[in-house]
Write a protein that binds this DNA or RNA. Structure first.
Lengths: 136, 136
DNA sequence: TTTTTAGTTTATAATTATTCTAAACTATAA
DNA sequence: TTATAGTTTAGAATAATTATAAACTAAAAA
């Protein structure tokens, strides 16, 4: 019940009404020990697999978008034509396997940059990500 | 005519029959002084704008895929749900503007990495790209 | 050369991911 | 307790891409 209250507060502080559906999605996404890479399709299957009350696909789209805007999810850069999200919102890096087109996490401290460019005028660097393309 | 022969050879060495359509696309894409970021939609407009004989959309899709497999184009990593290609196949970096969702090139030598992770077993590092997220 | 063949192009249909719409519903403020 | 503003939903609409199968063509074989 406490965990649920934590989630309710988290939603409220972002101006998101704590509806049944948002709480269910937040519980699924934010209470994990490993970070989670997912598409809306994958999340939908996971949410609606049990005898649970179903959450509509449109709501899953809306909620994932709302969570991303709130900074609770991060969209992953890929070359596929569907959106991938990551529950790990810390700046981190990925291996991108060109054969299988799979992404895997690289720990932040395994990559170090010693030169960054100056950003365009009026813009600030928020974070950076390294994608390392790998092959057989 | 010589430029055209160069293109024909380039196609032949990749096992691609030098058809009228492939030659036209190769001329448009590979004979530029600036690198070119594009979507299939944008390329289609560019190819079919003049009184030229039209190239079908399906062929543009097929050809862009064939050129990418042959290593003449590179797919750009983005968070949009359509494919972006780059005529700059050298490993290089991008600013990703989180506000406008626009990508701009960063010169290769403006970024330096001094630590790279070991790749997963059986895989080799082919290249890496840095995406720098920027904001107002 | 001419014929054959295997690869290519094309229009169009099908598929996939996502967004839109508007009616029903619900958390919260009055 | 009621009003209202935000939310959810099924299904329609849209956008990007892939599949299909018939017509075409470059290159190999005769």
């Amino acid at each position: 019940m406490n965990q649920k209250n934590g989630i309710i507060n988290k939603l409220r502080t972002s101006g998101l009404r704590p509806t049944k559906q948002r709480i269910l999605l937040a519980q699924n996404l934010f209470i994990r020990n490993k970070t989670f890479h997912f598409t809306v399709e994958k999340l939908e299957k996971e949410i609606n697999k049990n005898g649970n009350e179903k959450v509509s696909l449109a709501t899953i789209y809306n909620t994932v978008e709302a969570f991303t805007k709130a900074g609770y999810l991060k969209e992953i850069l890929t070359s596929k034509n569907k959106s991938y999200y990551d529950t790990n919102i810390k700046s981190h890096h990925h291996f991108y396997d060109e054969t299988t087109k799979e992404l895997t996490d690289i720990n932040y401290n395994q990559v170090k940059l010693n030169k960054l460019p100056t950003p365009p005028k009026g813009k600030k660097i928020k974070s950076f990500e390294v994608v390392i393309r790998i092959q057989k």
